[in-house]
Design a binder for these strands. Sequence first.
DNA 1: ATAACTATGGTATAACATGGGATTTTATGG
DNA 2: CCATAAAATCCCATGTTATACCATAGTTAT
Lengths: 154, 154
Amino acid sequence: MRKVFLFMDTICNKVDGKGRVSLPSDYRAIVKDLSSEIVCYRSLSLPCIEGCLEETLDKLAADIENSTDFFSEAQDNLTNLVFGDAKRFPFDSTGRIMLSEKLLKHAGITNEAVFVGKGRKFQIWNPENWAKEEARIRAEALKNRPSLRSKENE
Amino acid sequence: MRKVFLFMDTICNKVDGKGRVSLPSDYRAIVKDLSSEIVCYRSLSLPCIEGCLEETLDKLAADIENSTDFFSEAQDNLTNLVFGDAKRFPFDSTGRIMLSEKLLKHAGITNEAVFVGKGRKFQIWNPENWAKEEARIRAEALKNRPSLRSKENE
DNA sequence: ATAACTATGGTATAACATGGGATTTTATGG
DNA sequence: CCATAAAATCCCATGTTATACCATAGTTAT
């Protein structure tokens, strides 16, 4: 049994006409090892799909369940929205999941999808959008940490 | 056996003349796996129906049994209110439950019902009302967390 | 070199939502 | 205790969609 799990790497796979796409094999290995399931939903702040293990969302649900008043609306309604948006995406014997129209549209994905590891979760992007996003993130990081910039010239 | 259970996704199903609606298949799978039952009641704070597993309400009943301090009295009253309102809704061989007139009226449901996952529970809405409610939640969230708005434009 | 795995296309099968009708149960009054 | 009407439950049929399965080609590891 694995002690830790990390969604890593950046992998681009084809999306066929039905919305089927191969889940990176490393991701599948995590799901199998932990006997869990992949859950995906629209990012609340970015034009991409987010995915994680079902047990990650379960922790959220447990917190809400144990809060003082189960019948009142959750303190953070936005958190609550995730459950309405999320859905299990089991992969078949060939390792593919079938992304819904809703998710694909939100991320602007058509023929190709880029899986980007984010540790406890991952994101799925339209390739062009991810290229822009990655450039933006790097620029942002350099701006905030000049020490990184200086090392660039070495 | 499943380690966790989460009511997720947002699904719109038809309500026929008899008040019958298909319970989303994912929800049915949870009920079967846990050998439990679906229980529904009127939301205490919103114009919608709420549903959960019978064992979820059972935990709350246990809490009342064990409650000693007077501070929990108000909480217990709310819970008891739900017990008076709740009822089992078993689904037939085709996966349908029959919602009562009382519940349908409270939620303003006629031809269509939207099931919205909320983790340990779910809600059933009139489609138009849910659209408004979701918009309201998102607007509220943006007001309280401007950081989400800034990222939206990227 | 060969075996195992991966990504990907195509097809067959099973499951789902939904309409309609038949049968059983429930409430109520004789 | 039975009779009756209403209502709830069950069963069958259908089109649609998702899922499981098969096949191939390219990679990687042994």
